[in-house]
Write a protein that binds this DNA or RNA. Structure first.
Lengths: 180, 180
DNA sequence: CAAGGACATGTACCTTAGGACATGTCCGAG
DNA sequence: CTCGGACATGTCCTAAGGTACATGTCCTTG
């Protein structure tokens, strides 16, 4: 139910179209919570059916503006304060690390370098958001303060993985190339 | 296809039953790659159909031992070296952080404290694995060396999130309790 | 030997995710 | 004015994840 509440949360900042929401999701949360537009449009339809959001339809196929209702706002707040966090992660990179011993040393070194570079770049991306916020580019309203906190999480998380990939290059690991 | 290759990788360490594999997955990878037993049994069936693993069936409902075939071993190696890492994460905790401004300050503080405690505990869990490995509890074969690297990732990742949750408590955040 | 719990495997069903494809609008450049 | 590209919304289908339920074995303890 995270997509559902994520959409409600973004709509709590103000009205938006499905397209806007897809963009916001991808831009800010793309690396930590993927959401494709078909899912988003489908979920918006259900939210409207449940009375948690309302639509200003322009036409059959034109742009639509969704607005959160008081019930919808109450529902996000309930989710945030009264439901447990689902701590389940899905990190293919860590899954792969269990099998590093199956990789030829050269491939492993290249792999870890590429991983480190990727995570450094991701951390920098969030650093950019944090810097823009600190400069005051987006003003000072509560939503942008929350984005600063989210960006900090993105920085720390990805930097930790970048550091790990660097460290792993120096860690001794006997690989096993002949499938013994 | 990560579950598929994860199972192959674990079987590369030696023969095991579906039950064993479910346990290994849950124990070591539970927090970073969930896998329920129904999926595991189903996937083992497909892997056997594809000739990547072989079965020593005891009976219709008894314990089965799965063994990786040379084709299976080649397939894990191909996956590890020739396919791109899927960096998609799914972290509900970070999704929620974007909406912290919707939470009453007291609830938010409690929430962050609980989060920090959870991540500290998770980091400690991986520290335990790392310490056991460093003491030599599991010997010195390649698979356990890889587990040391995986454990290090678990430590750094969860510690980063624990530190973040601590930090976030001190970050100024004007919350918005009246839904303006 | 009977009962209970860990071990062990599976089916059925529902939800969620994700890729492929279809359609139409609106606007600016040529 | 027409063509292309960004904007915008959606359907369809397949794959993957996850819960509930069903079944049977094996070993230990009373």
């Amino acid at each position: 139910m995270s997509l559902r509440h994520g959409l409600l949360g973004l709509l709590a900042e103000g009205p938006a179209s499905g397209y806007d929401l897809a963009g916001r999701f991808q831009e800010l949360l793309g690396t930590v919570w993927p959401a494709q537009h078909p899912k988003i449009y489908a979920e918006l339809g259900k939210l409207a059916d449940d009375g948690l959001i309302e639509v200003d339809s322009v036409g059959a196929r034109g742009r639509k503006a969704y607005r959160i209702t008081p019930e919808g706002l109450a529902e996000v707040r309930r989710w945030l304060t009264a439901t447990d966090v689902d701590h389940t992660m899905r990190l293919q990179a860590l899954l792969r690390s269990v099998f590093f011993w199956l990789m030829p040393p050269d491939d492993l070194r290249r792999h870890l370098q590429a991983e480190a570079a990727y995570y450094r770049q991701a951390a920098d991306f969030y650093r950019g958001i944090a810097a823009a916020k600190d400069r005051g580019d987006y003003g000072d309203s509560p939503p942008t303060q929350a984005i600063r906190i989210a960006a900090e999480a993105g920085i720390r998380l990805h930097q930790a993985l970048a550091d790990w990939a660097e460290w792993a290059q120096t860690a001794p690991l006997t690989t096993d190339e002949d499938g013994s």
